[in-house]
């Protein structure tokens, strides 16, 4: 089966895609001459590259961008790695030139406190609201949650089966 441009319309309409997840920069813009011979270093370069923003692009990492500057920065990342920098040092090298704006995963600091604590805040609020909801429900007069013996007998008569197995719809 061959894909490419000749995808029939029906396939196009029927085939779909998804929502969750996301990929860690598969690096399509990278050119063969940039790739380091050492696969461990190259893997580190990719991991770093996918977290650095291409500054002249819009929301693309340097690994995803064709831009000239992205190419230069990819080379620079590899140079720094070859020079023995740690991942953190390479990122810091970029930050000292372009600011934290270059990081696609912003560091936790005063500027990003809401960004990083926000999801936690949502969680606390939601958990609190749910707790209040259930507590209030518990305070309200309870309806019967169990069948009485009489009801069980009638139910068994109606369904013709063992009524102790309830559950499901």
């Amino acid at each position: 089966m061959k894909h490419g441009r000749s995808i029939p319309l029906a396939t196009a309409i029927l085939t779909l895609l998804l929502f969750v997840g996301g990929t860690a920069g598969p690096a399509w813009a990278i050119r063969p001459d940039e790739v380091l011979a050492n696969p461990v270093l190259e893997a580190r370069a990719r991991a770093i590259g996918s977290e650095l923003r291409c500054l002249v692009c819009q929301n693309e990492s340097i690994d995803d961008s064709d831009a000239d500057l992205a190419h230069d920065l990819r080379l620079l990342v590899r140079q720094r790695l070859l020079a023995g920098d740690s991942d953190e040092q390479v990122k810091q090298y970029m930050v000292s030139r372009y600011g934290t704006y270059v990081l696609l995963k912003p560091p936790f600091n005063l500027d990003t406190v809401f960004l990083w604590l926000g999801p936690l805040g949502f969680l606390v609020c939601a958990a609190g609201a749910a707790a209040v909801f259930y507590r209030r429900s518990a305070l309200l007069p309870q309806e019967a949650t169990q069948f009485s013996a009489d009801e069980k007998r009638r139910l068994a008569a109606l369904t013709g089966e063992d009524s102790t197995k309830t559950g499901g719809t």
């Binding site: 860690a24 920069g25 996918s50 923003r53 990492s61 934290t100 704006y101 696609l104 912003p106 960004l115």
Partner: peptide, 8 residues
């Protein structure tokens, strides 16, 4: 300040 929020 300027903040980038990306895939990571």
């Amino acid at each position: 300040g300027k903040v980038s929020v990306g895939p990571p």
